Computed example of a mutant assay.
Amino acid sequence: MDYGVSHNCSGIAPLQTPEEAAPPPSGFAPSYYLRLAFNIVRWDDVSIRRASRDSNALFYGIALWAVSVTIIFLGTGVRPLLQRFAASPIALIIGLIFGMAFILVYMGVIVVVQLGLCHLIAKWFLGATGRFPEVIRPLLLGWFVNCLILVPYVGMLAAGIAWTAVLMLVFEEVDGIGRLQAFGISAGINICFIVLQYALPAPH
């Protein structure tokens, strides 16, 4: 109940607590950003706002995103490669390298285009006040929820629900738009993501 009350006034920046106003750690701090990422997917609005203002969060977010994409690729793309190149270890290694490079570039383009277009829509039509770097920092940190797609039978649904929730909270907190509007944008992003996911050519 407290959560709902604390978000009634979208677009109005809440007073910063000492925790939120504290500067990010200096130097190499992967454990801090990993905790921040888990807090973001737990709907912690303070962590979302902290990440949005932390320029270092972008680099850690990219790293965590790349690890997540790699995990998804290894969970979905390795078996077809093993079946095709089982008799040739060298060909298998080359296939893995090229497949990994392709999926990273492909998914990188999808993420940037999806989030960029939806941020522009929010800005042009819904009066969003955030900036794209502020939006993408917490979203990259929270993107790892898409690894739920590897769960048998319910993975696609679980990943879709979790990612929609993260998107909705980030757009609400960072772009300052209403929750219903944020949900609409988030659902639209996920529809595009799922369509493009199925459009990804499978290894032959």
Rank of each mutant, 00 (worst) to 15 (best):
I12G: 02
V174K: 01
A29N: 09
I62P: 00
N56R: 15
I177N: 01
V154F: 14
R179K: 13
L196C: 10
S68V: 02
G4I: 12
I40V: 13
D45S: 12
G142E: 00
V67K: 06
V109C: 09
I48T: 10
F183C: 13
L196W: 08
V111W: 04
L148A: 15
D45L: 14
S55T: 14
T76F: 06
T129K: 05
A165F: 07
A21D: 05
D175F: 04
A63S: 10
T17A: 08
E20D: 07
V105D: 02
I12E: 04
V67W: 08
W143K: 03
H7G: 14
L200C: 10
L92Q: 00
F125R: 06
V78I: 12
C192A: 15
A13G: 10
R179P: 02
T70P: 00
M1T: 06
Y198V: 12
D175L: 04
W163A: 15
G99H: 03
C9Y: 08
W124N: 03
I121L: 15
P80I: 08
S6P: 00
S186C: 10
L36I: 11
Q83M: 13
F183R: 01
P24Y: 14
I40T: 09
V5G: 00
P14L: 02
Q16R: 13
F183G: 09
H119W: 11
Y32H: 06
L120I: 12
D175I: 02
D54W: 05
S186Y: 02
R49G: 12
W65Q: 04
M107N: 05
H7V: 15
L115Y: 12
P80F: 03
P152A: 04
D2R: 13
F85E: 00
A187H: 01
A21I: 14
Q16H: 11
D54I: 04
A13S: 15
C118N: 08
S6N: 08
L167V: 09
Y60Q: 01
R53M: 08
V113D: 01
D54M: 00
W143N: 07
N56G: 15
A182N: 03
S31M: 09
M168R: 05
V5K: 09
F98L: 07
R79D: 10
L96V: 13
A87Q: 06
A91I: 13
V195S: 05
F28S: 06
I194F: 15
I136T: 03
F193V: 11
G11E: 02
G77K: 02
L117D: 04
P80E: 00
K123Y: 10
Q16Y: 14
P14N: 05
N8S: 10
V109Y: 06
V170N: 01
P25S: 13
L115Q: 13
G176V: 14
A187I: 11
